[in-house]
């Protein structure tokens, strides 16, 4: 483990007295470095604050393990704590007692909802389900066509709607009925991107929720998101009660601290990560990998 953070911590402990042991003083210096690492990974500053408190308490109460250097020990404490907060990996989607199970896919503009809807449909059909896709994005140019192209490539049916169905709620209701008639056990509803402060569009989502009674409401978030992740996730959760998170664009080099912020603020599990543009680039969320990545390891 010769990454930058552990190098930095090794140096921190070398430069202070009593380097062999974890003490209250050298711990503070080390925690400062960790704070910077978390902030550079885009973890929200309030979440960092709360997190550091937890780590400090844990660290000070701990036995000094002679097999670890102080630097290694601090990293281990932080990493373990990150994993605890990020939660166990829960890639499974819940299903309704009475099919079809409705999954709403929501989030900010450009986060990856449509692509993830296609990926989820593929994942579900590989796991023995018979999904039906529907796009209720009646706003963005060619948004519905985008999902239609993905569905066609995947060979998964899509509810196209009638020319009269111009409202998201109407489209979604008809798609649900279509699934019942054609024996499809899951309906994936790809919604338009929207800002969490857009009152009209947030109300539209509540109406969709009311009309569809979805089992899952997945919040799709971009791994490159900075401090704003807390505000948007919090508002989507407050308005809708999201049930899970999909973290996209993890194939890049963003550290993905937004994962910690979103998990902290909503308490909802990260279920999947997007790792590419193609429909097979969807993986289960692994808290241990996410933790290492946030720490830049």
């Amino acid at each position: 483990m010769f990454d930058s953070l552990s190098d930095k911590l090794q140096r921190v402990f070398k430069n202070i007295r009593g380097e062999g042991k974890l003490t209250a003083e050298n711990m503070e210096v080390a925690l400062k470095e960790i704070r910077v690492a978390l902030l550079e990974a885009d973890v929200h500053f309030k979440v960092v604050k709360a997190f550091m408190e937890g780590v400090r308490t844990k660290a000070l109460g701990q036995e000094v393990l002679s097999s670890f250097s102080p630097a290694q020990q601090v990293i281990k404490i932080v990493r373990d704590e990150l994993i605890t907060v990020l939660g166990t990996h829960t890639a499974r989607l819940r299903t309704a007692n009475q099919p079809p199970t409705v999954v709403m896919v929501v989030g900010l503009q450009g986060s990856g909802k449509t692509t993830s809807s296609g990926k989820l449909a593929r994942y579900l059909s590989k796991n023995g389900h018979r999904p039906l896709l529907v796009s209720v994005d009646v706003y963005r140019p060619a948004a519905r066509q985008q999902l239609a192209v993905l569905a066609k490539d995947l060979g998964i049916p899509i509810y196209e709607g009638t020319p009269e169905e111009t409202k998201p709620v109407d489209l979604a209701r008809s798609a649900r009925r279509e699934a019942e008639i054609s024996g499809r056990d899951m309906v994936l509803v790809d919604t338009a991107g929207r800002l969490h402060i857009d009152e009209d569009l947030m109300t539209e989502l509540s109406q969709l929720k009311e009309a569809l009674n979805p089992t899952e409401i997945l919040f799709v978030a971009d791994a490159m998101t900075g401090q704003d992740a807390v505000k948007s996730a919090e508002e989507f959760h407050k308005r809708l009660g999201i049930t899970g998170v999909v973290l996209t664009k993890m194939d890049g080099d963003a550290r993905g601290g937004a994962a910690l912020s979103i998990r902290h603020i909503t308490g909802q599990p990260l279920k999947f990560v997007g790792t590419g543009e193609k429909s097979d680039a969807l993986e289960a969320f692994h808290p241990d990998r996410a933790a290492s990545r946030i720490l830049g390891m």
Binding site: A41, D42, L108, G110, D222, M224, D228, A254, R255, A258
Partner: peptide
């Protein structure tokens, strides 16, 4: 560049 982008920008 998306304004929501963090340090990766």
């Amino acid at each position: 560049l998306d304004a929501t982008t963090g340090q990766n920008g």
